[in-house]
């Protein structure tokens, strides 16, 4: 996994080396478009059933992911929502949402980075990418 992360952080040239050492693993392409594409797969499998294909969520139950401060704001807070789940009463545009979100800490750092990058660049959102290294730092601090 550490090798995998290094591959993402380093530039494509080093990917060749990576590909040689682990030929069976598909090389993770750098760049936001590739992360978004991977993130969509993670989203479809883990998030869509509650937050819906359009990110709009469900009134009173599952909050929308469309242009909310949670999604567009502090990345650390957002990563923690995925790692720890969410069971607080919050108000978004005057609406409240009651379903508990389960922790999704079984997703890898890369998967969380990809899915958050996808969410932050879909449904009308436009925000910076989340990197696996950032997730790693938050996850490590989260355990303490």
């Amino acid at each position: 996994m550490k090798k995998l992360l290094a591959a993402v952080i380093l530039l494509p040239a080093s990917l060749c080396v990576f590909a040689q050492t682990k030929p069976k693993t598909a090389a993770i392409k750098p760049g936001i478009p590739a992360s978004i594409a991977r993130g969509k797969v993670v989203y479809t499998k883990n998030c869509l059933s509650c937050h819906f294909v359009d990110g709009g969520g469900v009134p009173n139950m599952n909050p929308p992911l469309v242009k909310t401060s949670y999604v567009l704001g502090d990345k650390t807070k957002l990563i923690k929502v995925v790692l720890n789940g969410f069971a607080q009463n919050v108000e978004i545009d005057g609406e409240t949402y009651s379903n508990n979100m389960a922790p999704h800490n079984f997703l890898s750092d890369q998967e969380i980075a990809d899915v958050l990058t996808y969410v932050r660049n879909s449904f009308g959102n436009k925000a910076s990418a989340v990197k696996a290294a950032e997730v790693k730092v938050v996850r490590a601090a989260n355990k303490k």
């Binding site: 069971a87 922790p103 079984f106």
Partner: peptide
């Protein structure tokens, strides 16, 4: 609760 899991709505709980 959804199904009285130890952790509500959590995978495999």
């Amino acid at each position: 609760s959804n199904s009285c899991q130890e952790h509500d709505r959590q995978l495999g709980s």
